[in-house]
Design a protein around this nucleic acid. Sequence first.
DNA 1: CTTGACCTTCCCATCAATGTGAAGGCCGGA
DNA 2: TCCGGCCTTCACATTGATGGGAAGGTCAAG
Lengths: 131, 131
Amino acid sequence: MRIGELAERTGTSRRLLRYYEEQRLLTPGRCGNGYRAYEEAHVGRVLQIKGLLDAGLPTRIIRQILPCLDGPPSIHFDDLTPEMTDVLEHEHDQLTRRIDCLTRNRDAIAGYLETVRGMRVRRSEAARGRG
Amino acid sequence: MRIGELAERTGTSRRLLRYYEEQRLLTPGRCGNGYRAYEEAHVGRVLQIKGLLDAGLPTRIIRQILPCLDGPPSIHFDDLTPEMTDVLEHEHDQLTRRIDCLTRNRDAIAGYLETVRGMRVRRSEAARGRG
DNA sequence: CTTGACCTTCCCATCAATGTGAAGGCCGGA
DNA sequence: TCCGGCCTTCACATTGATGGGAAGGTCAAG
């Protein structure tokens, strides 16, 4: 698949797909004429990258954690240094912290909305009572 | 408390505290001499802002959701338009999506690390068996 | 053979978050 | 009184994720 189709199927601009490649998040092959050649699997990969970027992770972190998500670790086991597992553990904890922060704030918003709805109901009940 | 102390206690640069104020995320008072005067409560507020920024929310969104996290909504009920609740619901869903994405990836990392540790153990067992 | 829709690289622009430094005011201690 | 450390505003620089255009190559259809 060429860049245009991947862009369409992932809702990403071609520009960004090239940027992700420059950041080594994506490594498409090349056709004889120089066009980038993407695999089916790249669709999911791009969506994953987008999700992580949207969640606030910088590309350099995404680059570090992406290889682990590819398949069974045995594939990547050989070049897995102790420093790498340290990085992964650190990122795991960071993610947990981020998740907690987002969850706290989401729940606060939920609680707020709920209270507001409660007030609405009571208000309209009061209005009915008066009317 | 002046800006230096708040910066120190929150691990934020003075520059950023002024930036947050410019973005209307923080509204310190002023001393007679023009110095910013922060309250104790601003410490938590800054940490919350930092957490949300770090989680990828832009200041304009944080500005919208911060008032809801301040206390009982009744205080802010009067200026709560329907558009505002729409924004909040939208942000709530966005946060949920973000949380799900981060959770999936964190769990994938956890699984990866676990598998790697399992392989380590089996390797060393094999080495003992041979030795 | 031309046209149009792709693709390539290169480069410049933008926006948000942040760093940094200049020029100057306040203030407490030697 | 002067100095050092804090504060002010203003302004320019940088970084990361994007958008956009220019100049040119590829290729299928008319």
